[in-house]
Design a protein around this nucleic acid. Structure first.
Lengths: 109, 109
DNA sequence: TTGTTATTTGGTAAATAAGCAAAATATATG
DNA sequence: CATATATTTTGCTTATTTACCAAATAACAA
């Protein structure tokens, strides 16, 4: 297998991995409505400040979010523009599966 | 926090988590060109058959792929339609970051 | 200087995931 | 029916991830 292809797959996997944790996805989902400082994300998740900081640096390294310091706080925002349409689309799939499990429909589109 | 929202976040995270592993993403990427049987995915990854099977059931449970038995083989295909445009978009971001690291450009869009 | 906000480091404990090997489960086909 | 083929399941070991705490560090505002 081509080496640059392997690197590409690993970079993509890194993005997915970063998003594949409830606390991190919760924070990212909150950022969809606009930038937030770390303290806001901490009270949202209820985690230790150092834990939140670690999660955020992981998201930043993967390219999912970016940060900017203004005044005494650091503000995070979504950097991966494609995320919004993906979440909208996959949430349709999730809704559909719930309805299927409840036997309210037979097939998902 | 709302309980149904928590379930939604967990289902979304499950999708990302499933995609956040190089071997699984490699298989999913191969499925973009059309369905494949497990044996083809095994020779692609070079992993043990039982390991491939586990990876595939994880992807299926998350709703990323679906499977169908035909003849003696089981064929897997992509079930999450939104994946294609997301991969196309995020690969642009990845390319851009590589160029940035090589100092060939200053800023990513 | 002192307080605030956030990051980093180091250490520990618990939970989860990865991988292989062997057993089990279909399901074709002779 | 017997046997070969394709895939899944189970059991096990090892590796990775996660959370938390505490302490050190950094940047900056008042």
């Amino acid at each position: 297998m081509d080496n640059s292809y392997r690197k590409y797959i690993e970079a993509q996997a890194k993005i997915f991995k970063a998003l594949g944790h409830p606390a991190r996805l919760l924070m990212v989902d909150a950022l969809r409505s606009g930038e937030k400082c770390v303290c806001e994300l901490q009270s949202l998740t209820g985690l230790d400040m150092s834990t939140v900081s670690k999660h955020l640096s992981l998201l930043r390294e993967a390219g999912v979010v970016s940060s900017e310091k203004r005044g005494t706080s650091i503000y995070y925002r979504i950097a991966l523009c494609c995320l919004d349409s993906f979440l909208a689309c996959s949430s349709e799939m999730i809704k559909c599966r719930v309805l299927q499990e409840c036997s309210m429909i037979q097939n998902c589109p």
